[in-house]
Nucleic acid binder design. Structure first.
Lengths: 186, 186
DNA sequence: CGTCTCCTTGAGTTAACTCAACGTACGTGG
DNA sequence: CCACGTACGTTGAGTTAACTCAAGGAGACG
């Protein structure tokens, strides 16, 4: 309902990979609705207001109301689409692009629910967090952020991210909004 | 029904990222059932026998038979779980581990449907294909494969992958089968 | 005032990349 | 049946992006 939630997984080396960020309105738990065992961690990121829906009533709802079921199913499919884009992001782009891409994704999704102000939004990140999300070391993340700052593309400070040059950021990010499937009527 | 299908996406640089492999019994198209616009490519890999189910009758089936709907929904959720593991694989492991992990994943999934022989299976790969799947260059993929060959862990030749030392491969891969959710009753 | 978390910087190292060339197998058409 | 083209694999050499280790600085907070 408010705040941010993240999915993550710790691999054998001890490093953590963040798999997704969720915001107000998302239902992260749907990913495990029919899996019976959670294969990753789901954590709040700072202060959060969250609601819980027991699986029992939820399954009943899904059985009795096909339209609601389809809307929820659709939600899990857009999550999957975002996972796929993250695979591309981490697999094919350099660290600077990856960060830019992540920032635009967060900005775009937050804008869709009216939680941005102009070209900025609040997000309780640390550099270590961003590093875990895009698969770089913390030190390198620091240098990438300085690079983006130096180019007057982004500003990041105390839980707030501000886009200074949107066109340039989009270019660096190689961002195509399609995968977010924001328009359900399309 | 037979053969392999792959999902992929081409990024701005022109490079291709493979997002998933699908085998007999999978229904790759379910990922776009409620999205109305496909955000990535789905391609056959060599000779294939595929079946098509029009969305109309499929939606009707889903509406009328909640149990079937849940089984199909579950299928899309396991696909998402695999996407998540790929994010970890590409984001956190080195190239050798990534290849090892991919091989064990393919082997495990094929074994579940009885399409392996002993510790080997047929798969129409090229080194360029594997490179696109784990996000490395072709040249580096070649060296990684030579490394695995040299350590007597794997053999790959003419569309066949053979595991020579399963324990060692699992160790290199950092593989935990959980994310495949092979047992629906768990 | 000390402690904790987070950010920053420098230096050395390594994994992976690019470019370019060459080898090899296979199939096809002359 | 050979010559050629194509696709795939292999190798070497030089370069670069990113990593690790280690240390120092800045702000927040009790």
């Amino acid at each position: 309902m408010d705040g941010f939630v993240l999915r993550s997984k710790v691999v054998g080396s001890g490093h953590r990979q963040i798999l997704a960020f969720h915001q107000a309105g998302d239902v992260p738990d749907l990913q495990s609705l029919f899996l019976h065992v959670l294969d990753h961690d789901v954590t709040t990121l700072g202060d959060c207001a969250v609601g819980f829906i027991p699986h029992g009533p939820l399954r009943q709802l899904i059985t009795n109301r096909p339209k609601v079921a389809q809307a929820l199913w659709r939600d899990t499919l857009t999550d999957a689409a975002i996972f796929r884009e993250w695979i591309c992001n981490i697999g094919q782009r350099d660290a600077t692009s990856r960060v830019a891409h992540l920032v635009i994704e967060l900005y775009t999704r937050l804008k869709a629910i009216g939680r941005t102000e102009a070209l900025s939004f609040t997000f309780p990140f640390t550099q270590a967090l961003l590093a875990d999300a895009v698969g770089t070391s913390v030190v390198h993340m620091n240098r990438v952020i300085q690079e983006l700052r130096g180019q007057s593309v982004l500003e990041m400070e105390r839980g707030r991210i501000s886009i200074l040059d949107e066109a340039k950021l989009r270019r660096i990010a190689d961002f195509d909004v399609l995968y977010l499937h924001l328009n359900p009527l399309l």
